[in-house]
Amino acid sequence: MQAQVFKAMGDPARLTLLSRLASGEGHTIGSLSENLGMSRQGARKQLQVLVAAELIELHKVGRETEVTINIGQLQQARAFIRELERQWDQRLSALKAFVEQTDPSSEADG
């Protein structure tokens, strides 16, 4: 799922769509795809990629399709790199604790 999220966000048109959604510039496929430089059909196709990555959801409301953003999933993508950094900090601390406790020659070799 992470890979799908990154793929979904790696396209300028899709980022624009997400940005418009996030800033409240539109919440239907019609309003989101205005001045996007692509057809409504094209916008729908890009939105489907975001749906597959669970970044947004589409709901049919009458003749329009309403789009809602999944902030949680976006935060997850950002959190991924932070989590990896945190893990490395933990591992390095553990390495330090282990080596300093078990290397009697540290002074001599220092």
């Binding site: 591992r91 390095l92 601390s93 390495l95 330090k96 282990f98 078990t102 290397d103 020659s105 540290s106």
Partner: peptide, 27 residues
């Protein structure tokens, strides 16, 4: 991602902790 830490030990001791299974599994 880049992370670093300072350890009071020899290069050899640190290298061993990375490359010897019985030491690597300690941390």
């Amino acid at each position: 991602i880049e992370r670093s830490i300072r350890i009071q030990a020899s290069k050899a001791a640190i290298y061993a902790a990375l490359t010897e299974a019985d030491k690597l599994t300690q941390w």
